[in-house]
């Protein structure tokens, strides 16, 4: 039961990864790609780590820390990248 749940989490995470990383190859703007990357890197990775957590419950503190730092860092990074790249565009005109 737990194994099925864990596999499900990891598969969802991998689907998120592929779906969110694929637009990187396109020609959209940086911000549009940032949206899909936040799906892939934050939510997808969190789903994968949840899957790992269900598989090895006795190491929960470390994986919980991984979850928290994933959420915080990736979100803040999204904000910083958005801020830095748009100020440049705003400078152009």
């Amino acid at each position: 039961m737990i194994n099925i749940l864990s596999d499900g989490c990891m598969i969802i995470g991998l689907v998120f990864w592929f779906w969110g990383t694929w637009p990187l190859l396109g020609q959209r703007s940086v911000l549009y790609k940032l949206h899909s990357l936040s799906v892939a890197d934050t939510l997808g990775s969190m789903a994968i780590v949840m899957g790992l957590l269900l598989r090895i419950p006795h190491e929960w503190p470390l994986l919980l820390l991984a979850l928290i730092s994933l959420a915080i860092w990736n979100t803040v990074l999204g904000y910083v990248l958005a801020y830095c790249s748009t100020r440049e565009i705003g400078h152009d005109g």
Binding site: S36, S38, V39, T75, V76, G78, Y83
Partner: peptide, 13 residues
């Protein structure tokens, strides 16, 4: 953090 965390919205400034 809250606004940026949801994938549809990103605070840019």
């Amino acid at each position: 953090f809250l606004i940026t965390f949801t994938p549809k919205t990103i605070v840019q400034h």
